[in-house]
Amino acid sequence: MKFVYRLAFASLILFTACKKEKTWDVDVKEQTVQLKIQDISADFFNDTIPLTTLRQNYPFFFDAKTPDATWEKQRREKTELSIYGQSKKVFGDFTQLNSALTPMFQRYQHYFPEYKLPTIYTYSSGLQNLDYPVMYSQQAGLMFIAMDAYLGPKSKLYDSIGVERYMRVNMDINRLPAQSVDAIANNIVTFSPRNQQFIDKMIYEGKKLILQDALLTDTPDEYKMGYTPQQIQWCIANEGQIWNFFVEQNYVFSSDASLQKRFLSVAPFSKFNNEIEQESPGRIAAWIGWQIIRNYLKENPKVELKALLEDMDGAKIFKDSKYKPALEGDNTTNYTTKSINGETYHFIK
């Protein structure tokens, strides 16, 4: 059954819508963070709570055009209750979620002291919000987390609706902080619609990813990109060839809108239209944009994070980054690795 409050959430969000000199190792011990986490679904599926009370407590949760009878039926639907039950097994009493998000929000307060901490609402979407499991509005001070998007890549519920393998990589609670920062970045990193060149879009995605570097200093690059370790390794090994392809095809300063879908959209692989494409991960140009920004900060270590995330000219950032990866070479020296659950993950030095 389609979750009818999905539109209400979306509307709320849309309309409120390295050199040693540069380091993200800042002292945030003085940043006091007490997160407020509320489980909407705990109340929604408690049929002893009147619907009128739910509407008063969670006005953003309900689509006003939906009849009360539809809501009442949904509150008792066995499938919906089962999905929520499995979600609660993963999240428990939210202690793990609180512990995972608190350090990130300490850094958030450090870099953006003028922004208030959001109230965090968790909910079960009935498997409807798997594409965008975290939504954030800085203006409204709200964050929404679809718990059923983190049941684990091997969840039988995902089998039942045919969730593709490349999407399941992120469906792990350990990857939730990275997706939370991505939702924040979508809301606070500025982008001018006038900037339609491919380099502008790469730089924009790179800025969003650099926010993850700043707020998630102990998180592997795989989590930040939504990649597997093998995909990050492929990117590192082929960085020069990827960039050379963009240059040779005259894509860098192109305004061809199709490049967005081919190289920046979430997909099982990037569309090179040659024999290597299915070896590549999706969003490869976002990863390149990230390396450009990282290089820019090496060359310009005094640039403040907030200034970088504003609408700085993408072409100028690219020029000042002096980005030119070697066509043939080993870039693994820029990374340290760490084993997590038997897999080797990558961390930028």
Rank of each mutant, 00 (worst) to 15 (best):
D63Y: 08
E304V: 14
A64T: 02
I236Y: 01
Q278E: 12
S321W: 00
F94G: 07
E279L: 11
K298A: 11
T48M: 15
K89F: 10
D313N: 12
F94K: 05
S137C: 04
L259D: 01
A185Y: 10
K306S: 13
K319S: 14
F3P: 03
Y345W: 04
T95F: 02
L309T: 06
D93P: 09
D213G: 05
Y111M: 05
F45W: 04
F91L: 15
K261P: 05
F60D: 08
T344S: 11
S321G: 09
F112L: 14
Y115S: 05
Y158R: 06
I83T: 04
K338D: 02
A237H: 06
V134A: 03
K261W: 11
D47V: 15
P177V: 03
T333Y: 07
D200S: 12
D27N: 09
N244P: 03
L127K: 10
G289E: 00
F15G: 15
G226S: 04
K322N: 12
P113S: 13
P113T: 15
W234M: 06
L176M: 05
Q31D: 01
K207W: 10
N331D: 12
Y296A: 06
I242A: 08
I236N: 00
I188H: 03
V252A: 05
R262P: 00
F60W: 10
Q241R: 04
D93C: 11
S254V: 13
D27W: 08
N195Q: 10
P118M: 08
M312A: 14
A286E: 02
F246H: 03
K201M: 09
A69N: 13
K322T: 09
Y204W: 05
L327A: 13
P50E: 06
I13W: 00
D68T: 15
P325T: 06
G206T: 12
P113H: 12
Y158Q: 09
N250W: 14
A267D: 00
M167N: 07
W234E: 06
E299T: 14
D93R: 09
I292T: 09
I348D: 09
N244M: 04
N187C: 12
D256F: 15
N244D: 06
S82H: 11
R107S: 02
S160G: 13
L97G: 01
N341L: 13
S255I: 06
T48R: 05
K201T: 03
L216G: 03
Y108P: 01
Y150P: 01
Q231K: 07
F191W: 15
K89E: 07
N46P: 05
K116E: 11
V26C: 09
I242H: 00
K201V: 06
S41V: 03
T66P: 07
K207P: 01
Y227S: 08
E222R: 01
A257C: 02
L209G: 13
E80W: 03
P301N: 03
R283D: 03
L35F: 02
F94E: 01
I288C: 05
T32F: 14
Q106S: 15
K324E: 04
I276R: 14
K154N: 13
